[in-house]
Structures are given as structure tokens and as C-alpha cells.
Design a protein around this nucleic acid. Structure first.
Ligand SMILES: [Zn+2]
Length: 228
DNA sequence: CGGCTTTGACCGGCGC
DNA sequence: GCGCCGGTCAAAGCCG
């Protein structure tokens, strides 16, 4: 799965596709933004297997967010200076997902559904994914248009948290951006929901080589003219 | 004028 | 019930 499906905040890096295949790490962009060290999926942290920026594999997880304690638990577990691995261990939330460790070909997808609601069978699966990105700027063009609808100060953190909603018609995908409480040089970008439309920067074209329909992101070629 | 920010009000869940 | 807390609303303002 391509991580840009979720609207990767690092998408402003025009070379993020190259990084997956080649070892080309343009210094111009790495000075600006380094790729996430790990991902947080529904408040579950997945550490990259080999901590290699150029060979990252990504894991996806759909999970119904029925728990609200996780944030407080995380706060407790990260009271001391923790590395990414510590967070995972302390939370102990990947018990069923341990198979992903050290096996970069295994992609574990967990699907939980809230069943037996008093109301309808409104199985409202809202995947939540969080990127932790080292960046000085938190305004990152990920290809979608976001409308800010709130700002709140985070407890125990000097940094506020911004709330965005996708401007797409009938699309309720939400996004929150805040600076890491521990290390303000990191930005936590959390996406929630699935777009009911394509990214306005997504295009399809016919490959001149194979004449197959190829999926592409325009920021590889048109990112410089991105609006915002 | 239309779409977006800003910002305090508001609201629901939860713990006491 | 009350107050905290995280999240959302919406009126007013800003900007092209
Ligand atoms: Zn959308």
C-alpha cells in the first residue's frame, strides 16, 4: 500500500517515491524534512523494521477507536524520555501484531469493528493514522485541501493542536496537527477517516513504456506550484 | 463575495 | 452534579 493514500504529510517531499526504491536521499529535502521514524496507527506505534529511511515498509491497520484511555496511558508511559521502541513496549498494544517485527514482507492488517451497537449496525470504521515527522514547518501540503476548524492547547504541552477537516464535498476526513510534546522538532499529524474522493493532486496517466495505466502523484512534478 | 482562520462558546464523556 | 478535558461549532474577521 502506498502511504500517500492517507495523505502523507511528507508528501511535500517530491522524492518520497524515489526514496522507497533507490538510495537517493536528496540533501536539499532531507535538510528540510526527515521521514518519520515510525508510524502511529490508531494510537498504536509501529517502529520501522530497519530504521532505514530509504527502505521503510509501512503497515496499515483499521481499528475502531472505542478506547479513549490510550492517550492517558501513553502519557504515563512516555513520562520519561522514551524512544520509539519504548513506547511500543510500554503500551503493549501490538501483542497480536508482533509478527510484523523483523519481517519486512509481512503486512499485518487488523480490522476491528464495533459490533452490537444499541443503535443500528452502523459499523463506522474510521481508521486513524498518525505520522511523526521531523519538520520545522507544520503546514505541509499533502495533496488535500484542509479547512481548519479548531485549535486547542494540549494539556502538559506548550504546543497547541490544530484541527482540520477535508474541504471535499461530503468528505469528513479529519486531521490534527501538533508538535510532539517531548521533542518539539517533531510534528504529529493524525489522519482520521477515508476520503470519498481522490486527492486533487492525484492523476492517472498512460505509461509511455508499458502503456498501462499508472498511478501517479502530481507533486513529483507539480509540487512547486501547489497552492496554499 | 466566497472560502478560509480565528477564537471563544459549547458540548458530551468521564472521574470524583 | 460539577469540573476538567478533548473535540466541535459558528460568528466575526480576514483575504483573494
Ligand atoms: Zn477528503
Amino acid at each position: 500500500m502506498d502511504i500517500s493514500y492517507f495523505g502523507n504529510p511528507n508528501a511535500s517531499n517530491p522524492y518520497h517515491h524515489y526514496n522507497k526504491n533507490n538510495n537517493i536521499a536528496p540533501s536539499s529535502s532531507s535538510d528540510f524534512i526527515n521521514f518519520s521514524d515510525y508510524l502511529v496507527l490508531d494510537d498504536v506505534v509501529f517502529v520501522d523494521n530497519n530504521n532505514n529511511i530509504n527502505n521503510q515498509e509501512y503497515y496499515s491497520s483499521w481499528s475502531q477507536s472505542s478506547e479513549t484511555e490510550q492517550s492517558s496511558d501513553k502519557a504515563a508511559s512516555s513520562s520519561t524520555t522514551t524512544t520509539a521502541a519504548d513506547v511500543v513496549i510500554n503500551q503493549g498494544l501490538i501483542s497480536d501484531e508482533t509478527s510484523i517485527n523483523n519481517n519486512n514482507t509481512t503486512t499485518t492488517t487488523t480490522i476491528k469493528r464495533k459490533t452490537g451497537g444499541i443503535k443500528e449496525n452502523t459499523v463506522e470504521v474510521s481508521p486513524r493514522i498518525t505520522f511523526r515527522t521531523r519538520s520545522q514547518l507544520e503546514i505541509m501540503d499533502d495533496g488535500y485541501k484542509w479547512r481548519k476548524y479548531g485549535k486547542k492547547s494540549v494539556k502538559n504541552s506548550p504546543n497547541p493542536r490544530n484541527y482540520y477537516k477535508c474541504s471535499g464535498e461530503r468528505c469528513g476526513v479529519k486531521k490534527r496537527v501538533e508538535r510532539d510534546r517531548e521533542d518539539s522538532s517533531y510534528v504529529l499529524t493524525t489522519y482520521e477517516g477515508v476520503h470519498n474522493h481522490e486527492s486533487p493532486c492525484t492523476s492517472y496517466y498512460t505509461s509511455p513504456v508499458s502503456s498501462n495505466l499508472v498511478y501517479s502523484d502530481q507533486w513529483t512534478s507539480a509540487n512547486s506550484s501547489s497552492s496554499n
